[in-house]
């Protein structure tokens, strides 16, 4: 028996919004420790890794580990039926081929449930090696989304260059070029608004705008985003989900042939 209850169903909806444009389907691996998902996009350029810890849920029970393969467009339809203040309970029997979502309104005057068919997905888990990153940049997630959106108008790629002075995002295209430089802030009072750079050595890497834009769909999950970079290694874009876990995106760089 698997049962997970989250008072704030809107959080799950935000997680879904953050992955559904990148992934058509994905397996949710449920165990005693929580729910994990790892999946590549169709083009195998990026990887999504979601980790929700069991004690972040308001109720969590997982007697036997199970993998639930889901079509994310279908799952979005289910969550479109939930109210923003609803509580969600996710339930599945061991070896079941369906999963049930129950939504309860705040005062419990409305209770709805949706049963969805599960899929058998041929899933391949990738090993993510431990990396000593050259640069780790922590910045407001809304600012990152804004920069990626702005620069995407001009070119297909963004060069992210980090030095101890700051981080620079650059693009070039048919109509010209664009650069955004962010300096490290000294505003320690407001951690949410600060740009913090932890640099071992300078690094400059090129990434496809299309994927960066899809990652920024996670912006509503967290005020801050962390970008971790190292030469010739995928970029890690990490959003912490308060009290529940984290959502990480890995993006392969564009490299000179």
């Amino acid at each position: 028996m698997f049962e997970a209850r989250l008072v704030n169903s809107a959080t799950f909806k935000k997680i879904l919004d953050a992955i559904k444009d990148l992934l058509d389907q994905a397996s949710f691996d449920c165990s005693e420790s929580g729910i994990q998902l790892q999946a590549m996009d169709n083009s195998h350029v990026s990887l999504v890794s979601l980790n929700l810890k069991s004690d972040g849920f308001d109720k969590y029970r997982c007697d036997r580990s199970l993998t639930m393969g889901m079509n994310l467009a279908s799952l979005s339809k289910v969550f479109r039926c939930s109210g923003s203040d609803d509580t969600v309970t996710i339930k599945a029997q061991d070896d079941a081929d369906t999963v049930t979502f129950m939504f309860e309104s705040k005062k419990q005057e409305k209770i709805s449930d949706y049963e969805m068919k599960l899929m058998n997905l041929d899933q391949e888990h990738l090993g993510i090696p431990e990396t000593e990153f050259s640069c780790i940049i922590k910045m407001p997630s809304a600012e990152f989304a804004r920069i990626v959106r702005d620069l995407s108008q001009f070119g297909e790629s963004i060069v992210i260059s980090c030095t101890k002075e700051g981080v620079k995002f650059s693009t070039q295209g048919d109509i010209g070029t664009g650069n955004v430089k962010l300096a490290q802030t000294n505003n320690f009072d407001k951690e949410e608004e600060s740009v913090i750079i932890d640099m071992q050595e300078p690094v400059s890497l090129t990434f496809a705008c299309q994927y960066l834009n899809l990652f920024t769909k996670a912006t509503p999950l967290s005020n801050q985003v962390t970008l971790s970079m190292c030469d010739n290694v995928p970029l890690v874009v990490e959003y912490q989900i308060p009290d529940l876990g984290h959502l990480c995106y890995y993006l392969a760089p564009k490299i000179e042939e």
């Binding site: 590549m40 195998h44 888990h125 790629s157 564009k254 490299i255 042939e257």
Partner: peptide, 14 residues
């Protein structure tokens, strides 16, 4: 000329 790498050229199946 830059070419897009695949994520599987960095991360291998477990």
């Amino acid at each position: 000329k830059l070419s897009q790498k695949s994520i599987t050229s960095f991360f291998k199946p477990n």
